Amino acid sequence: MTDFVFPAPAPAALSVAGSAAAFPLARVFCIGRNYRWSAHEAAPAQMPAWFMKPASAVCAARGELPYPPETGDFCHEIELVVAIGRGGQDIDPAQVPAHVWGYAAGLDLTRRDLQQQAKQAGGPWEPAKAFDHSAPCTPLVPVAACGHPTKGAIWLTVNGSERQRADLSGLLWTVPELVAMLSRSVALMPGDLIFTGTPAGVGPMLPGDAVEGGVEGIGRFCMTVAQRAATPHRETSQEFAF
């Protein structure tokens, strides 16, 4: 048995709908633009970009949503989340359903101002995307209960005002195509989550905002954005050390 130099942290996990069981988490992959954001947008010529968040960023989509530090532009992105139950590499798209354990509704939360800074500097996106509590999810619904959804509403409101609405049939790249793409780059593992992209209408959230959303037949959530934590004043630099 390994003699750790300090107690190992508890493994990250996501609850399972209608069960006391938990789904252990490995990694979190997030897909870039995967819906048309305008009616005249051309069909994509290549697969979308992807990035990662740590498994520790996943949290239950309920109660208070912490407002993260280091940002003044905290944005929502509602997404269908795919949970991998069987690993594999270079998976044939036709075989992907056998690798999917279940689905959830999730939020790819973003510090948009940090993302824009990273884009301008050609730097990494981790400060904008990989912060604590940046991947809230509803409980996972097993495939045995929901099948493999290819249509159904995906939506989000802030204070009762609709911000995002689309249909899963509007995904530019389907779940089998996305899973196959990722598996060509990395060996997927049981416990991996894949956030499949967000519809048009992403926008900022403020402390006190009531945020509701969901995916038809999969799950829905209601959260309240918490107040900003007090942070000490410090000098800032306009230079980027990426």
Score class of each variant (00 low, 15 high):
V16W: 09
L80I: 09
S56H: 08
A60G: 00
G88V: 10
M47P: 02
S38K: 15
A49V: 12
L14S: 09
W50D: 02
P7Q: 02
R33Q: 12
R27G: 03
I31V: 13
H99S: 08
G63N: 07
H133I: 09
P136C: 01
W37T: 14
P44I: 13
P139E: 02
P7H: 06
N34R: 12
S134Y: 07
A22G: 13
W125M: 08
V82Y: 02
A12I: 06
G123S: 12
L109G: 01
A20C: 11
Y67Q: 02
G122A: 04
S19F: 06
G32T: 07
P127I: 03
R33N: 10
G87W: 10
T71G: 02
A12L: 07
Q115P: 03
A20G: 14
H76L: 01
A43W: 06
A118I: 03
Q120M: 14
E126N: 08
H99L: 11
R86K: 12
E77P: 05
W101K: 03
F29G: 02
G88H: 09
A135T: 07
R86V: 15
R33P: 04
R36T: 09
V96Q: 04
P54H: 11
Y103A: 09
W37C: 05
R33C: 01
H40C: 11
W37Q: 13
V28Y: 01
Q89D: 14
P66N: 11
A94E: 15
K119T: 12
L65W: 05
A61R: 02
R111A: 06
A17Q: 13
F29R: 13
K53I: 04
C59K: 07
E41N: 11
A43R: 15
H40A: 15
P44E: 13
S38H: 14
P127L: 03
L65R: 07
Y67F: 10
W101I: 03
L107W: 06
P127Y: 03
C30V: 03
P11C: 04
E126Y: 09
D108M: 08
L14N: 08
P44C: 11
M47D: 06
L107E: 00
A60V: 00
S19A: 11
S15N: 12
N34I: 06
Q117W: 08
D90K: 13
G18Y: 03
H40R: 15
S134W: 05
N34A: 08
A20K: 15
V28A: 04
L65Y: 08
A26C: 10
F51S: 10
E126D: 13
Q95G: 12
A104M: 00
F23D: 07
